[in-house]
Amino acid sequence: MLTVFVGIVFAFLMLPLLVVFPISISSAAYLQFPPPGFSWQWYQRYLNDPGWIDATIRSVQAASLCTVLAMGLGVPLSFALVRSRRRWVRALDRLAAAPIIVPTIILSIALYGVFSRLQLIGAWYGVAVAHTVLALPFVVILTSAGLRTFDEAQEQAAAGLGASWFIAVWRITLPQLRPSLVSAAFLAFVSSFDELVLAMFLSGASMTLPKKMFDNIMMEVDPTIAAVSVLQILLVGVCLGLTALFGRGALATTISR
């Protein structure tokens, strides 16, 4: 019974891929399923088009910076929220999910106003900063969850053995939070890499990959979009693989939390 259910869910998740991949190697010049013949031409077109490559690099840059910023802000924030003795600070923890609740379009318009004044529109790092707002909740929620189950006596033990608080956290606490941290970094990266709405408002002429894909659909619908999608899925898959490799149990924590 459960097996059947799992099978159905899995098929539901995989089905888009089963359509997208054949289309990406289609010989037809338009989106047709099933494809009439085989060709790598859409991958070639992607690789030979500087517009696509620039967009990809920009997205990787933005997602990387977003991950760094979200982790750099989110991890210390989680310590403050979880460890504080003040009740109102711990209550703030509930607010950490606020950026997820606020409609992205509202956030986009607001940030557009701010960024245009700061002349950040069209800069990949501007997009990265905006994406950090969205990625921060993932980092805070995952890190806090990991931190709450961590035995604080270990930090005390480390301090008693001669470690400063910073060293104790760096050498004792963070290594044990690795599954949570790796999951958080993964989600931060993917949430930025895949984000469209903010990018539409903020990336201007220097498009991120999702924006470029969107424009492609609007203007010239050809199977390049399918090829890009497959490559994007592959990249996320590689990230997932790395997550599994470097954070034993990270995937499980990502899913269960």
């Binding site: 006596a153 005390q156 033990a157 301090a159 008693g160 053995l161 001669g162 470690a163 400063s164």
Partner: peptide, 11 residues
Amino acid sequence: SPRQRDVGMVF
């Protein structure tokens, strides 16, 4: 501070 007391502790 605890780290400068040179006290061994078994928890």
